[in-house]
């Protein structure tokens, strides 16, 4: 995988993580906003400017691809590259959790 992309996206910001995660399914910008709010129990409400900026960046980097059908809203979906980056980040998160449990974390 592209080393430059790994360096750019990992570790991932919470915003990027949840946006990329919600793009396992095809969604439009506002749909992503609603879905992220839903899966985080209303905790994370991403601003519209942040959504647009992040979508443009991820599309330019090939993590997601946008589809526009006629006059309808542009929708986005993860690409195989985006999927691989997300999986890489999940491995990192799992390792953090694993290590914190192993070092006597009584919370786990």
């Amino acid at each position: 995988m592209n080393k430059h992309l790994i360096e750019k996206y990992i570790p991932m910001t919470e915003t990027a993580f949840f946006m990329l995660l919600s793009l396992r399914e095809e969604r439009h910008g506002y749909g992503i906003m609603q879905h992220v709010e839903e899966i985080t129990d209303g905790r994370l409400r991403i601003g519209a400017g942040t959504i647009y900026g992040t979508l443009s960046k991820m599309e330019a980097d090939g993590l997601i691809e946008g589809v526009r059908e006629g006059k309808r809203r542009k929708t986005y979906k993860q690409t195989p590259v985006g999927k691989a980056i997300l999986e890489e980040e999940i491995i990192r998160l799992k390792e953090m959790l694993w290590v914190s449990r192993g070092t006597g974390g009584s919370h786990a």
Partner: peptide
């Protein structure tokens, strides 16, 4: 409009 630092930095 912006809820994260990175998008503001990019803008």
């Amino acid at each position: 409009l912006y809820t994260d630092k990175q998008s503001l930095i990019d803008r």
